[in-house]
Design a protein around this nucleic acid. Structure first.
Lengths: 193, 193
DNA sequence: GGTTCTTTATTGACTGGTCAATCAACAAAA
DNA sequence: TTTTGTTGATTGACCAGTCAATAAAGAACC
């Protein structure tokens, strides 16, 4: 019963299943067979559409990043002042969707993959560059030449808090992490102006 | 030619080889066979002394953490003022030994393992608790009740900068990372007092 | 409207390889 | 002869990726 035009449906299902499968029991030892099963197809079909396991995972990561990007853009349209813009970027980074166990586990997997896969490293660089430029753009009107330095530290703080939250159940969850970054931001801005 | 008293020697050799093997090409796909070969013994012997692969890796991580702990203690004896104490903890976190590719890769592997292995999670909690308490201890005389909050943010910043450094060849290396944390510390202290 | 051809969808079975862990056996020291 | 050290060989499992085969949907041609 081959209906035509299945490709986009299958690909989307595999991306979704990949994130779910990584999230289930937080394991990074996902197999193509399990992903395919979760997506309701054979592993052979998964290979047919994506070619390799890494390709499947990269597609999943692109999806996560695109959701993240959409959230940032959505938050930015609401921002009136430069300060609002910075806050919007920070809040988007700790949004509920980013804090789902599946997303956190996917990020960890992504970090590991970035050590070996040039494509993953490139994708990671895109994310980091976007985060940085978003922060700098908001900070420049507030602290001028100090903006890039502050942006780097805030970006690293975001990543660090995100990592800590993902690893130990302890540490500040979403809102707590946001509050922590905003406190650090406050201190940096007061110090720079 | 079985000389007696080999156990500590073999264990130490395996720990050393594990870290080296993880560092070589930064891969996390270390096999017991390769570790054992690097340590000059059969894989069977490695299992004989450690029981499982995870045990071997946990021993290696304990070693890394003990070296880190020693560096922190060493730096602390030189510290005269509370401010010196905080700086000592920060500098120790970004010491040369922590920035070797092997150590960075081991940390990443450790993070991943902590998601599944309770023993690894416990070890990670010990590290985080120690880092936090060291920072709080130094900060308390400087900023009083603000110390714990600042310590949390500085600790997260340390982890985030460490992660970024390990992942992209870019980003501030050891001294740069230290400088970044010290700048953030300055801002936090000025803001709190 | 039927017949062939091509394209897309789909899977079961298989391959080639890897790896952790075990075990039986051997060697030397105490 | 008991304890400690040591390994080659093997087992058992898992898994990514391939392939041949099947099935249907449309296209082209008559």
């Amino acid at each position: 019963m081959p209906k035509l035009g299945m490709e986009p449906i299958r690909r989307a299902a595999l991306v979704k299943a990949t994130i779910e499968e990584i999230g289930a029991e937080g394991s990074l030892e996902v197999t193509v067979a399990r992903i395919a099963k979760r997506a309701g197809m054979s592993s052979a079909l998964a290979h047919h559409y994506f070619g390799s396991k890494d390709e499947i995972f990269l597609a999943a990561m692109r999806h996560i990043l695109s959701v993240y990007g959409a959230e940032v853009r959505g938050a930015l349209v609401m921002a009136k002042s430069p300060r609002d813009r910075v806050e919007a970027v920070i809040r988007a980074g700790f949004s509920e969707s980013n804090f789902r166990p599946a997303t956190i586990a996917a990020w960890l997997h992504f970090y590991v993959l970035a050590q070996k896969s040039p494509a993953a490293a490139r994708l990671l660089a895109v994310y980091q560059g976007r985060l940085r430029s978003n922060l700098v753009h908001g900070l420049r009107p507030i602290c001028g030449t100090a903006a890039p330095g502050i942006a780097d530290r805030i970006a690293a703080l975001i990543d660090g808090l995100y990592l800590r939250t993902g690893l130990s159940g302890a540490g500040p969850r979403g809102p707590g992490a946001t509050a922590d970054v905003l406190l650090a931001l406050e201190a940096e801005i007061n110090n720079a102006t």
